[in-house]
C-alpha cells in the first residue's frame, strides 16, 4: 500500500543517458546547431543577393517608374536632411571640443580643424548618415512594403500585370544609391561647419585660419571615399528595407518584426562594410 503513488517516469531516449539537469552539455547538439545556423546564414545571404540582382536587373529593362524613383529620392535626400544635418552639426561640434581637449595635453591644439574635417568626411559623415537613414528610411521601406505584403497589395500588383520587384524595389534601390552621397555631401559641409562654429566662437581660433587649415589638409580622396561609402550604405539600407518588407509574413506582428530586422541588419552591415571600405581605400 505504501508504494501506490509512484510518479510516472519519462521515457528514456534510446542511446542517451538520462541527465540530471535539462542543460546537459551535449557536444553534437552544439555542432548541429552551429551547422543549422551556418546553413541558414548562407541561405539568407544567397536569397538577399538574388533579390538584389533581380532588383538591379530591372534598371536595364523597361517599363521604368520615374515617379516612384523621384518619390524615394526625395524621401531619402530631402526629408532626411533635418535629422542627418542636425546629427552632422552636433557631431562636428563635439569633435572639435573633444579633439581640442585631448590634443591640448601635448600641445597639438592646432590640429583640431584637420581632425574634424578628416573624421567627418572619411568616417562620421557617411556612417552617421547611414545609421540615421537606416532608422528612418529602412524602417519606412520595410513597414510600407511589409504592409502591402500582408494586405495582398503585392499580389494585386502581379494581377495588374506589374512586376512588384520593378515597381517596389528597383526605384528604391536606385534612389538609395544616388541620394545618399548627396545627403552625405551636405552632412560633410554641416559637420565641418559645426566644428568651425565651436572652433571660432568657443576655442579661440580665427575664422580664416580655421578654414585655411581645413581646406589645406583636405584631399579629394577623403571626400570621394566618404561619398562612395555613402552610395554603398544607401544601397544597403534600401536593399534590406525592401527585402525585409517583401518577405514579411504574419500580419501586424510580422510587419513589426520586418521593420526591426531591417534597421538592425542594415545598421550592423553599415558598420561592417565601413571597415571593409576603409581597408580598401586607406590600408597600406
Amino acid at each position: 500500500m505504501g508504494r501506490a503513488t509512484a510518479a510516472p517516469t519519462a521515457p528514456r531516449e534510446p542511446g542517451r543517458v538520462n541527465s540530471p539537469t535539462p542543460l546537459a552539455f551535449r557536444p553534437l547538439d552544439w555542432v548541429a546547431a552551429l551547422g543549422r545556423a551556418t546553413i541558414g546564414l548562407c541561405r539568407s545571404t544567397g536569397a538577399v543577393a538574388l533579390f538584389a540582382l533581380t532588383g538591379l536587373s530591372h534598371l536595364l529593362r523597361p517599363p521604368f517608374h520615374p515617379r516612384l524613383f523621384l518619390r524615394a529620392f526625395l524621401e531619402i535626400a530631402w526629408f532626411s536632411l533635418p535629422v542627418v544635418g542636425l546629427t552632422a552639426v552636433f557631431t562636428g561640434m563635439v569633435l572639435a571640443l573633444q579633439s581640442f581637449s585631448g590634443f591640448s595635453r601635448f600641445g597639438a591644439e592646432g590640429a583640431v580643424a584637420n581632425v574634424v574635417v578628416l573624421s567627418i568626411t572619411r568616417e562620421l559623415g557617411p556612417v552617421l548618415a547611414g545609421l540615421m537613414v537606416s532608422g528612418r528610411i529602412g524602417a519606412a521601406f520595410a513597414a510600407e512594403i511589409g504592409t502591402m505584403r500582408v494586405t495582398d497589395q503585392i499580389d494585386a500588383l502581379t494581377t495588374l500585370s506589374t512586376d512588384p520587384m520593378k515597381y517596389l524595389v528597383t526605384p528604391r534601390l536606385l534612389a538609395g544609391i544616388l541620394a545618399m552621397p548627396l545627403l552625405v555631401l551636405v552632412a560633410d559641409i554641416l559637420g565641418v561647419m559645426g566644428g568651425y562654429l565651436i572652433g571660432t566662437l568657443k576655442l579661440g581660433f580665427s575664422g580664416p585660419a580655421y578654414l585655411k587649415a581645413t581646406l589645406d589638409f583636405l584631399q579629394w580622396m577623403d571626400v570621394v571615399s566618404g561619398l562612395v561609402k555613402a552610395a554603398v550604405f544607401g544601397f544597403v539600407v534600401a536593399l534590406l528595407g525592401t527585402w525585409c518588407g517583401y518577405t514579411s509574413r504574419g500580419g501586424a506582428q510580422g510587419v513589426g518584426a520586418a521593420t526591426t530586422a531591417a534597421v538592425v541588419s542594415s545598421s550592423i552591415l553599415i558598420l561592417a562594410l565601413d571597415y571593409v571600405l576603409t581597408e580598401a581605400f586607406f590600408a597600406r
Binding site: 517599363p63 502591402m148 494586405t151 497589395q153 499580389d155 495588374l160 500585370s161 506589374t162 515597381y167
Partner: peptide, 23 residues
C-alpha cells in the same frame, strides 16, 4: 481581392486605372 487590396499610397482614381497607367 477579399479585402480590396487597394494601394494606400495612391488616390482612388489611380487605383482604378492602375493597370492602364502602369502599361
Amino acid at each position: 481581392f477579399q479585402n480590396g487590396a487597394l494601394f494606400d499610397s495612391l488616390p482612388v482614381w489611380e487605383n482604378v486605372c492602375f493597370k492602364l497607367l502602369a502599361q
